[in-house]
Structure formats: structure tokens, C-alpha cells
């Protein structure tokens, strides 16, 4: 295979996966930006999204793209269901209280999913075309997933910058006391932000399932949480655009470094790309301690 094809393939797949990473991190970033809570259970919410798409497809034959509104709705409801009894009470507590709370939330979802759906590794076959791009073969579903991710990001952007709600959220982020004074119901803003953040997270789980419709299981969340953390920090916590760009960078970097590493004798290049990606994180933080786009 010519070297050029190798590069085209890795770039294409890297960028598409990066877009998915980006949207998968946006919800985490939003919740941190507004509530200052690191959601340790992040991946478990994505897992719920992946199952949503899987079940709607397997049981009702619903086009995976159309499961997205359901994921958003389920996510929004889950967000509210966790906000009022739990999250609300730990916002002002020390950071560790919120870590413990979100950890327990994730554990609850994971175990509930296992009880309801067993720990089988599931997947589905959504028959779509396979395309040839620059000599590289790829499923159209991956492009669709990435396109939807961009759409979701746009939606997110519109809510944030073009609506009254977005204005109020930004006001709370900037100056909570000030927002209270001008009559913003801060508690409600928190509730809505958490709910939107979880909705986007669950939806990103659906997109991941469209992108890679295999390996869906209750424990898939752990690695997703880890990657989202790294990408969120790389981009600058609370910066949604930053999360997105960092996601794409991370995806690209992982794949591109393979091409370089494969020339080295005696190492496992794809395993080492992980090492390289995490080193990149440290280097970025050394140069910019608040991430690429953090303030």
C-alpha cells in the first residue's frame, strides 16, 4: 500500500473520530463551566445513549439517526432527576463531595444497565453504503455520525450565544452574585445547564454507537470518561469550542503518530500512540496551564 493512502486513511479516520470525541466532551465541559463540577460518571451517561440507539434500532427498527431526539430527551430527564435530589446539594460542598456524588451516579447507571440488559457486548448492523474517499474505504454511517456531531455542536452554540437562557447561563458563569441581584434564578440555571449537559452527553453516546456500532456494554463508560477528561483539559475546561478542537486534535494525533512510530523496531506503534497522546497533554499543559482555550 502506498504511503499516501496510509496517511489519507489515518487522517480521515482520525479526524472523524476526533469530531465524536469533541462532542462527547462538550457536555462535560458545559457542566464544569457552569456548575464547577467534574462529572466522574460522564462515560456512564454516554453508555445510556449508546444503549438507547441500540434498543430503538433492535426492537423497533428505528433509524439510528432518529434515536437522537430520544437520547436528548432521556438525557435531559436524567439530568433533572439527578440534579434536584443530589447535585444541587453538593454544588457548594467541597470539590470532593461532587466527585463522590458523580462517581456514585455513574456506578448506579452502570449497575442498573447491567441488571436490565446484562453485561453482554452488543452491537447492531445498520446497512448503509460503504464509500471510497481518496482510495480509502469507509462506512457512510461514520460520516453521518460526524455530521450529526457538528449539528449538535451548532445547536449547543445557538443555545449558548443566541438565546436568553444562554445569556443567563453566561451571566451566572461570570458572576453568580451579580446574576442573583439582577433577578436570575441561579438554581434554575444550574438545573437547566446540568440537564442540557447530560442531554448532550447522552446524545454523544448515541453518536458513538452510530460511529462504532459494536462493543456496547455497561462498562464501556470508564475509558470514555478518561478520554473526555483529557480532551476537556487540553481544550481548556469550560470552553466548548476548545473541547471540540482538542477532540479533533486528539483523534488526529493518535492516528498520525502511528505512521511515525511504525518505523521503530521492537515497539508496538498503536499502543505507543496512547503514550504519545498523553505526553502531548502534558506538554500542552506545561505551555498553557489552562489548556489551549482556557481563561
Amino acid at each position: 500500500m502506498p504511503f499516501a493512502d496510509l496517511v489519507v486513511g489515518t487522517l480521515l479516520y482520525g479526524a472523524l473520530l476526533g469530531v465524536i470525541y469533541g462532542i462527547a466532551t462538550a457536555g462535560l465541559s458545559l457542566i464544569f463551566g457552569v456548575l464547577k463540577i467534574v462529572n466522574v460518571g460522564h462515560g456512564a451517561f454516554m453508555m445510556i445513549g449508546a444503549y438507547t440507539t441500540y434498543w430503538f434500532f433492535t426492537l423497533y427498527g428505528l433509524n439510528p439517526v432518529l434515536s437522537l431526539p430520544f437520547s436528548l430527551a432521556i438525557g435531559a430527564l436524567l439530568g433533572l432527576a439527578f440534579y434536584y435530589p443530589v447535585v444541587r446539594r453538593v454544588i457548594d460542598a467541597p470539590e470532593m463531595a461532587s466527585l463522590l456524588a458523580t462517581f456514585a451516579m455513574g456506578l448506579l447507571l452502570q449497575e442498573a444497565a447491567r441488571m436490565a440488559w446484562t453485561s453482554d457486548y452488543r452491537g447492531f448492523s445498520w446497512e448503509v453504503a460503504r464509500l471510497e474517499i481518496g482510495g480509502v474505504s469507509i462506512y457512510a454511517s461514520k460520516l453521518i455520525a460526524a455530521g450529526l456531531a457538528l449539528l449538535l455542536l451548532l445547536f449547543h452554540y445557538v443555545v449558548f450565544y443566541r438565546t436568553k437562557l444562554g445569556l443567563a447561563i453566561r451571566a451566572v458563569v461570570q458572576d453568580r452574585e451579580g446574576a442573583l441581584v439582577v433577578g436570575i434564578n441561579v438554581d434554575r440555571i444550574y438545573a437547566l445547564s446540568f440537564s442540557i449537559g447530560i442531554a448532550i452527553t447522552v446524545a454523544s453516546g448515541s453518536l458513538l454507537a452510530i460511529y462504532n456500532p459494536v462493543g456496547i456494554n455497561p462498562y464501556m463508560g470508564a475509558i470514555l470518561t478518561l478520554k473526555a477528561f483529557v480532551i476537556a483539559v487540553m481544550g481548556g475546561l469550560g470552553s466548548i469550542g476548545g473541547a471540540f478542537i482538542a477532540g479533533v486534535l486528539f483523534g488526529l494525533f493518535e492516528n498520525v503518530s502511528y505512521v511515525v512510530l511504525t518505523g521503530i523496531e521492537g515497539v508496538q506503534p498503536l499502543v505507543l500512540t496512547r503514550f504519545i497522546a498523553f505526553t502531548l497533554l502534558l506538554v500542552i499543559l506545561l505551555v498553557r496551564p489552562k489548556g489551549l482555550f482556557g481563561r
Binding site: E95, L272, T273, R274, T279, L282, L285, G294
Partner: peptide, 23 residues
């Protein structure tokens, strides 16, 4: 804060995959 927390994740994972990848 969170930047510190997550940089340390990077160290943990980085060391692990260095051991596995470079054998």
C-alpha cells in the same frame, strides 16, 4: 484544580502505555 487532576491521569496512562508499547 481540575487541570492538575487530569494532568496526573495523563501521567498514569502515559507510563502504562509506555511500558506496554515499548515492551
Amino acid at each position: 484544580g481540575a487541570y492538575f487532576a487530569i494532568a496526573t491521569i495523563g501521567v498514569n496512562e502515559g507510563v502504562r502505555y509506555l511500558i506496554e508499547g515499548a515492551n
